[in-house]
Amino acid sequence: MSAVLTKDIVKTFADVNAVDGISLAVPDGEFMVLLGPSGCGKTTFLRIICGLERQTTGDILIGGTVVNDIPPRARGVAMMFQSYGLYPHYKIRDNIAFPLRTQRVARAEIENKVEWASNLLGIGHLLDRRPRQLSGGERQRVALARALVREPTVLLLDEPLSNLDAKLRASARNEIKQFQQRVGTTTIYVTHDQVEAMGMGDRIAVIDHGRVRQVGTPTAIYDDPADRFVATFVGTPPMNLVAWNGGHLGFRPENFLPRELIDDSAVTEFSFRVDRSEYLGSERIVYGVLEGLESVQEITAKLPPAHVDQESIRPGEWHAFAVRNSALCYFDKDGKRAIRH
């Protein structure tokens, strides 16, 4: 049974469909990431699931029950907000206890649960402080503890890491993921950061203009993008696209290699003129153009420095590059993925 099931959710704000028919099934215990550019409707969709917004049409089922007309507090969901939404006038202890107090849980039980949640997240020593006395990372943990303390059916996270600095973000990412695996709570996580999505999600739903473009495991999303949007939104640098038989042919920069490096005969060869290159330590990004082919943007190749001699790829020169046929993706004129190329 799905913990969360949405059927054709539409949300209209002043004639604009912020959410334009999203149907999504999130199985029990799954870590589902909603990935999309800002303004794509993913946060609105999350707010509809938890009941802060009412969908214009469509049904939401949580744990098999239709919750369209059930207020947020009765849906059994917990949500963690982008800026955490901690209560500044309460101590951390009371912040975490708040969702239990609203449910009139007994005092002793509240104490136990607050202790359990704060120990789980390693914030037991902060209980008597106030939110403003905490660092960004600590606040994030408090917000998570507050979301988890009443053991929700579904945990909704709205860009929880965007207020942290880059270094902290990496460790917090890891922590949330491990934590979710340990607790096993069904989680829906909204982000615009593909690294977070790829690293954390059991599955990813890529959303654009209020529609789901593709739902799949990180591998499927990356290797088998369903359309041009997914192909170019996920991956840094994005997938190369060249005009091909009225549609587009796509290949990932790391699959676009000098011919001699590919030990295979089922390849498609290109003549590649290098314009410039960037050395990034673990990889070398080479920018250029393909002979006789029109491309959507600058063609990039991601080369392993260990295997490609720096001197062999010189700007201004034409080189023989190739892509394994198995790594090619063909998109038809509507941008949809097609089998044949």
């Binding site: 707010r47 938890c50 009941g51 802060l52 947020p72 507090r73 969901v77 917990a78 949500m79 907000f81 982008q82 800026s83 955490y84 939404g85 901690l86 209560y87 500044p88 708040f98 969702p99 609203t102 449910q103 507050r146």
Partner: peptide
């Protein structure tokens, strides 16, 4: 009052008066 705080309270189960 930040909207996030009010939304958090709503999801945490607080009704109008609380």
């Amino acid at each position: 009052v930040p909207q996030d705080v009010i939304d958090a309270a709503t999801v945490d189960g607080a009704g109008f008066w609380r």
